[in-house]
Amino acid sequence: MLWAVATIVFVGIRLVPGDPALAILGGPGSQASAEALAAVRAEYGLDQPVLVQYGAFLGRLVTGDFGESYVLRRPVADVIGAQIGATLALAAASLVVAWAIAIGLALVSTGRSRWARSIGGGIETVAAALPQFWLASILVIVFATGLGWLPAVADGTPAGVVLPVLTLAIPVAGFLAQIMRESMLDALAAPFSLAARSRGESETGLRLRHALRHAAVPGVELSAWAFGYLVSGAVVVETMFAMPGLGRTLLQAVTLRDVPLVTAVVLVVALAYLVVTFLADVAATLIDPRRRDAETGDRPAPTPRAEVAA
């Protein structure tokens, strides 16, 4: 799969207009001389036929040589190494916060009072639909400019991370909450919930001890997808809130046609996505060992509903 990603990046970059040799020499506005351009092309193999370039490209990747950034003149591995921590931390924190919000929302929207349920459900839907740019702006206007509680841009303090994390977490929380609510409702109507109630379990206890665990499984699976969403959202958030990270790096690299950096970032993100998907799978199986037994890979039978009037 990584190979497919690498190939897509290779092809994609070549389809975008803009001469890589120029990018190496400092951008389109540079008054590069013909000799300089020719020298760069020779050095980077840009004058070779496409297939040869592709082969060389793959060859370098396989040996882990990501090359040097055209624009930053530093090894790509260094650039990524410096920035990746911030983005991963942002994504991880956002995922955690998203889970917290989602659990809260799911508990409310599966609650006993009807109006709480509809409000909770409405919030979930709206949250999932919010575009990040808009959400970031609104949060800044309300909490930074308006109320002055939080800083408008990241400034190294924990408070500076709150708005960026919320911007990423809220839409994900909406998605998570919707799925979790479905599972929770299923679980609450299942025979074991009836059995638990018959033992004297309170509604809250029922949700916390039983339903939440059932809801967690699809939530964990969705979290793998959410990770991809968070990383792409990081581009927006890091730019808006002036935070260091891979998202901003990628944006700049694409604008300036910095091929090695773009390639490397995309590959790293793809790799991280694979890892996260694997971890999510492991986690889901830990919660629900029945998944291990499904030979065909199908999901186990959904929790049956208890017949009330039988």
Partner: peptide, 16 residues
């Protein structure tokens, strides 16, 4: 008062 349900596979939480 205790309750014994019909289907044990469903009446016991499969995740616990």
């Amino acid at each position: 008062i205790g309750l014994v349900l019909q289907d044990a596979l469903g009446a016991l939480d499969p995740l616990r």
